[in-house]
Amino acid sequence: MTSYDSDKAAKIQAHLHSHLPSEPALRVKALESLLVERGLVASETLDAWVEAYSEEIGPRRGAQVVARAWVDAEFKARLLDNAAQAIVEFGFEGNATGDLKAVENTADAHNIVVCTLCSCYPFSLLGMSPPWYKSAAYRARVVREPRKVLAEFGVDLGDDIAVRVWDSTAEIRYLVVPQRPAGTEGWDEAALAAIVTRNSMIGTDRELVAGAE
């Protein structure tokens, strides 16, 4: 049984870190071989998870949700009211989306999401998080100087646009709904989804480009 003894956990962590091979690939290999030998998981099941999160579960899911919100006002209202429930309409619910909230960019407000304490992320909707999202620089700085961080992503915000930072400190996860760009009138959902970038759904991208289709 789990001991819930913090100091015991610290001793185990220190022992493992100093005795395991230093290469992360070898460390993960040790964990995998242990679990496979004990019969807790089959190697082929791991292959299946890697494939699922490489091919099926990724940011294209979030993009489809955003595109529908752009064309369907009733869906958008449901998404902003209860995003966890709204994405069930697509079958996109799963890991870390049970308490999902959607926040909408407007002409005078920009939303950006971070987890300063670990790297919480709505995996089942956006897939694996990008390296920068897990970096110390992003986690440390975006709450304090979001405009400078945004500029590093090529997003320069005027003083008239307020920045709303969302620090995911509990189990609530956030999806940013970017603004629909001009020049996309009459486009169907698939065409619209194709121009929604992953970063725009985290908040490190703002001006989506109609020509990107």
Partner: peptide, 8 residues
């Protein structure tokens, strides 16, 4: 103009 929101 800016804000930071946390779940507490």
């Amino acid at each position: 103009h800016d804000t930071v929101a946390l779940d507490l």
